[in-house]
Amino acid sequence: MNHSRHLCTMDSRAVTEILKVVHEIETSGFSRIAKGLQDPFILGTMFHNVDSREAHICELTGGRLGVPVVDLSWRNVESKETSVLLDELRMAESTVDLLLTAFASKDTFGEGRNLTTKFPSSPKSPIVSLHDDIYNWQTALSHLAGFQNRIGDLSGKRVVVSWGFGSNFANPAIAHGLITTSALAGARVRVVEPPDFPTLNRVRKEAAESSGSVEVTSDYRNSFSDADAVYVLNWFRLDDFKHPERNVNFVSKYKDWYLTEDMIPESCILSCDPSIQSGLSISPELLQDSRCINSSWLSRRVQTLAATIHYVLRYECSFT
């Protein structure tokens, strides 16, 4: 196991090359990636407060690459100091060939990101953060892969990341990740959000400083006419992270934030996550339209993770 150069976050090279490998996997399969792994190769996972689908995606990816996946997740997190959690991570990454992490706090928004940025600078094995409570890189990249597969190079394309009406109130980490990775891919990003449900300003600011552009609007009805790709998520109010029940006090005024077939161009691509509420955020007809690529969501997640593993091993780096 080689020592790895530690990267704080995504960059344009990573986005470009990971998307390139995703396309290769989609057209030619996983064999080249699998052959590049040493024998034996062990993939570890270390999660906290994460949807069970993340473990399934890791297991599916391990199966495609022909490598075992071992769960080394944190336990009893609430009773431990950050230093102890980091010690447990060091122990885990020293025993596998690559460690996949995901950490989101139930109590403090941003705690997962804070922990992730403190990961060791020179781990014995690469560490890949699938997501924390600020950025969800893997899901964001999988949406970009779907966009690129249908509309080609994303440079100069209009990517719209929009809040949508609903009652699920998901973490905005996917939206944050998509804003950033789209900008890194050179897209013109438009964030459509109600005043009561903003994304993090620093996320938008940092994304705007990359190779793309980012604009923010609350003019829902007029935000999609020039879109090449659209992503919709019903994210929660950051101000009420500890009081999720308060979201309902603000959401009713945005019932018309509802995407229908006639609101996006015929050439536009739509993507969202399995948690999307048909009939609330997006019309059932649009979700069944050929412009919607949701049916490939799971396969794109697996392909994206395999491509990310290939990237970090090739460049001996880590992603947080």
Rank of each mutant, 00 (worst) to 15 (best):
E81R: 15
S318Q: 07
F47H: 10
L100D: 03
L298E: 14
K157H: 03
L65N: 02
D239H: 05
D153M: 10
L65G: 03
L19V: 00
E17A: 05
Y231V: 04
N222L: 06
R190T: 15
S125I: 07
N2W: 11
M91V: 14
S210D: 00
F241E: 02
M91F: 11
D71L: 10
D219T: 03
A187L: 04
I134G: 00
N49C: 06
A306K: 03
S225G: 08
S167K: 09
T82D: 13
S121I: 12
V15A: 00
P68Q: 04
L37S: 05
C58H: 08
I25K: 07
S79W: 09
T217H: 06
T16H: 13
N149A: 15
S225T: 10
A170C: 14
S4F: 12
F236K: 07
L141D: 04
V216R: 14
H176L: 06
Y258R: 06
V70K: 08
S267R: 12
A140E: 00
D273Q: 13
T320G: 11
T117P: 00
I293D: 01
A227L: 03
V161D: 05
I127R: 07
L270H: 05
E245W: 08
N49W: 07
P274N: 10
W257P: 01
P274L: 03
P123C: 08
D219Q: 13
R53N: 10
S211Y: 06
D132R: 06
G66A: 02
V189Y: 03
F41T: 04
H243Y: 09
S296G: 05
G166H: 05
E81N: 11
Q138P: 00
L154S: 08
Y231H: 09
Y311W: 15
E209W: 00
D51T: 11
D11K: 02
L86S: 03
R32S: 12
A208G: 15
S12D: 13
L305P: 02
N76S: 14
L130I: 15
H3A: 14
Y220E: 07
I151H: 08
I151Y: 03
